[in-house]
Design a protein around this nucleic acid. Structure first.
Lengths: 349, 349
DNA sequence: CTCGCATCTGACAACGTTGTCCAGGCTCTA
DNA sequence: TAGAGCCTGGACAACGTTGTCAGATGCGAG
């Protein structure tokens, strides 16, 4: 095993970080600088013999082209950025992966970062990516004002927003039909006899949360049901508060007989609460969850395809870069109601 | 709403991609180039009045520093790379996020890519990141030969391997105690009376898979049980084949009474198969799974802390970059057996 | 009023690569 | 054998930034 452990070689003061350049390779191979460049980039106009000499020098020195310099010269970075909320959320993993695959197919690298649902951090991240001169940006908005991106877009950074629309600028958006999905989910509960249905969702400043709430209200209204204040709980996602919200809806003289959960994190906590209840309570959740079919009862959900969201957005991004695309558009992907049992429980009145 | 939709502005031929540079800002503010640089970087030695003029020019032109040029000049990129297997796998999401947080705390950006468990792609990706001159690299190995990284490490790229050891080079490694975890998990089943225990895991060329198999064998041997060939199934992870493997173990004259599942993907499929069985079969899985406590019975697992793996690795990476660290080390994090019911079922002989 | 000093500013080179362009050597033909 | 044309290789500038260093400016003191 070769000795790679001599870290002292790399400490400041010694030859730390010194890397061979094309100039070094050229000197060693006894050729000109540009000839090395030609070999490295597979350009024509180099005799096999020269090419071999250059290649040997490259291998001997462990040369690797410095893409920073290349980018500086060429203008394009062949990389795109993805700003999302939290990579650890199972909803975003497949989305990110899908964007990566599309990028790879176009020879681009993906740089992604988490905004942690903080608008300032989203901006900081997006602008840092722009400073790196990514060719394009896929953004899952945390904030609701994206005018800070105007100079970038004008300068040629392709931009697509996913999952939630851009704020105060006109740009491509790819999202799921939150309104329709929630309406269908709640209508499903109503169709199974429920009238007192609770809604637990995120802060209405988040577009998807607001849309789902709107869908809930629409379904209730369509059925002629007047929603009572105690039935909706907004802006709670941390387990502790979701738990309290659910328990409150389920207690009192007129408890809800069914709950619609506004996203996967809420759903998970509500499942736990319902598992502790004496009487069965129906549940439909927005977002699918792994193992949902193995619960008792199976979990009925309004599913969105996060990978498809990512793929669609990324493809649109590259079409912007091709120049194929002209007008910004809003693309809404349908959701799918998957019945597994929890949404078909009758009211336990 | 301002008009950002005129993509024609950005088509080749027009002023596509033209961005203001410091020179432009300097011209507009009527100052020298270096003065702009000073303002942008918050260096001292600029009168408030001059600074204000420069700042106005920056805002007016929508200038943003080109980090590629900066990197070229300064040598450091303030970014690190992460090569993992698949971002969509719930095991890697938290790991990636943890690395990102540590990077952020050090003012660095994280670039990550998926190798899709393909050694060639891992190499391609790692070298692409090196060409971008990342300061450091966190690698979850797909292959078993990492000598291709030698020139990079020698050139000063800090490197830490996670989850699986590096192949044929001496480098920092952070991993979970797969051997011990599997041994404990299997011993747990034995302690509950099982003797015919099946093992379903990934290809033994993957280090973690081999270690878990070794742990299984050790536990069995410790108990004086001779493992029959039909009890182990290696190299299967896709649901279809896992299903078949499990069903085979459970049929025949001498079926297993318990199964140890080698990773989260295997576990999920095995749960489904077991749910269809007439008699109860005990199960312990490696890796925790969301909602594991809500299954019937609850899923007993050997849990590893993927976020801690990531955090530990990233911190070690930055200590390498500080020059604080000298000799490569192998850090093994303990696993934790979480009993929830499925591993405590008695044999149904 | 002049000198010296401190403070602020700008000219210039360099980072490593690629695009442009020209020189030199070769082959082929007349 | 001379001229035309092709092929290979190299010199040089440019990309946008930062570090170095020297010049300019203003102020106070002698």
């Amino acid at each position: 095993m070769p000795d790679t452990s001599r870290r002292a070689d790399r400490l400041p003061g010694s030859r730390y970080g010194t890397r061979p350049t094309m100039k070094d390779v050229a000197a060693r191979a006894g050729v000109g600088l540009k000839t090395v460049s030609r070999v490295v980039n597979g350009e024509p106009g180099v005799t096999p013999d020269t090419e071999r000499r250059v290649q040997e020098a490259i291998d001997a020195l462990g040369f690797r082209r410095n893409d920073s310099a290349r980018v500086l010269r060429k203008g394009r970075t062949a990389s795109i950025g993805l700003v999302l909320e939290d990579l650890a959320d199972p909803f975003y993993g497949p989305l990110s992966r899908a964007v990566e695959e599309v990028a790879r197919a176009h020879g681009a690298l993906l740089i992604n970062g988490s905004s942690a649902e903080d608008p300032d951090r989203e901006q900081e991240l997006a602008l840092a990516l722009c400073a790196r001169r990514v060719d394009g940006l896929v953004v899952i908005p945390a904030g609701d004002d994206h005018r800070y991106l105007e100079p970038e877009i004008r300068a040629g950074v392709a931009t697509v927003f996913v999952d939630r629309p851009a704020g105060k600028i006109d740009a491509d958006v790819v999202l799921s039909d939150s309104y329709g999905g929630a309406r269908d989910g709640v209508a499903h509960l109503i169709a199974h006899g429920h009238r007192r249905i609770g809604f637990i969702g995120d802060m209405p400043r988040i577009h998807t949360a607001a849309e789902r709430l709107r869908g809930y209200r629409a379904a209730m209204e369509d059925a002629g049901i007047v929603v009572e204040g105690a039935w909706t709980s907004l802006g709670v996602t941390d387990p502790e508060r979701v738990r309290r919200a659910a328990e409150e809806m389920l207690s009192g003289p007129d408890p809800v007989t069914a709950i619609f959960a506004g996203n996967n994190r809420v759903t998970v906590t509500v499942i736990r609460v319902l598992a502790e209840q004496a009487r069965p309570v129906a549940l439909v959740g927005f977002d699918d969850i792994e193992l949902a079919d193995l619960l008792h009862p199976g979990l009925t959900v309004v599913a969105q395809d996060s990978a498809l969201l990512g793929r669609t957005a990324a493809e649109r991004l590259f079409r912007q870069l091709d120049g194929t695309l002209l007008a910004p558009e809003r693309i809404e992907l349908p959701t799918r109601l998957i019945t597994r049992g929890s949404g078909e429980l009758p009211p336990a009145d």
